[in-house]
């Protein structure tokens, strides 16, 4: 394994990316390397400033050769000397489309997901829509913990009952109401642009709830216009 080999500073790892021999920094993930070489890889739970979490699985890539290949979450997988990597094989594309189909069925009102669907040429959703707001990518949780040092939100429950919340589902003193969680949320990216904004899909934003905003009447959001302005009590009714 490459990481056990001690390298000289600045020494690069060489591997095969879609058939081309490329070099990468040994500390990069496959996703970082692919992005460096200009490839579009869909992601929902990844952000450059946060620890990768590897849960949306949209960034999967096929690694290995011959009939011994497997899919890996590229945001978590290190670059390895000599590894053969395919970012857009049929297996990868099929998998990404299916995952996106599952996520859209959960949150059909998300513009980000709809845009991604058109990018991946996903045309049909075969599951009953759930009209949920959260795809459980966990960006907000990591944002809160790693960048805001607050640890004010986290996961509760498990399996299909998993959700993101505050301790004991109550307003907490850990939360400084900075709004960073809303800022980074991919599922409701355009929610706070207001119901008339041209960019929204269907005014679905009025029906959705931010993870923590719903819990705090005095939420301060630095997006313009602020979520709490858009979502006046009468709008929610």
């Amino acid at each position: 394994m490459s990481r056990n080999i001690t390298r000289q500073k600045g020494e690069m790892v060489t591997f095969m990316l879609n058939g081309a021999q490329v070099q990468a920094d040994p500390n990069w993930s496959l996703l970082e390397a692919a992005k460096f070489y200009g490839l579009y890889i869909p992601t929902l739970c990844y952000d450059e400033g946060l620890t990768p979490y590897g849960v949306c699985r949209l960034c999967v890539m096929e690694v290995g050769s011959g009939d011994r290949t497997k899919l890996v979450a590229s945001c978590m997988h290190p670059v390895i000397e000599g590894l053969e990597v395919r970012t857009h094989s049929n297996r990868v594309i099929k998998t990404r489309k299916m995952i996106l189909e599952l996520l859209i069925a959960r949150c059909p009102g998300s513009k980000k997901l709809q845009d991604m669907a058109s990018m991946l040429e996903l045309k049909e959703v075969r599951f009953k829509p759930l009209n949920d707001d959260c795809i459980l990518c966990g960006l907000c949780v990591r944002m809160c913990e790693e960048q805001m040092m607050a640890k004010a939100i986290g996961y509760a429950g498990r399996g299909t009952d998993r959700y993101i919340t505050t301790p004991f589902d109550m307003t907490s003193e850990e939360c400084r109401k900075c709004g960073a969680c809303m800022y980074i949320c991919p599922a409701c990216e355009l929610r706070c642009q207001g119901p008339e904004a041209k960019t929204t899909l269907c005014s679905g934003c009025l029906n959705t709830e931010a993870v923590c905003a719903a819990k705090y009447d005095d939420a301060m959001c630095f997006m313009v216009p602020c979520l709490s302005c858009v979502k006046r009590p009468e709008d929610v009714k």
Partner: peptide
């Protein structure tokens, strides 16, 4: 331990 982690464990 952060309260949210204890809550997470208790509900997991």
């Amino acid at each position: 331990i952060p309260r949210v982690q204890v809550f997470g464990v208790a509900t997991f």
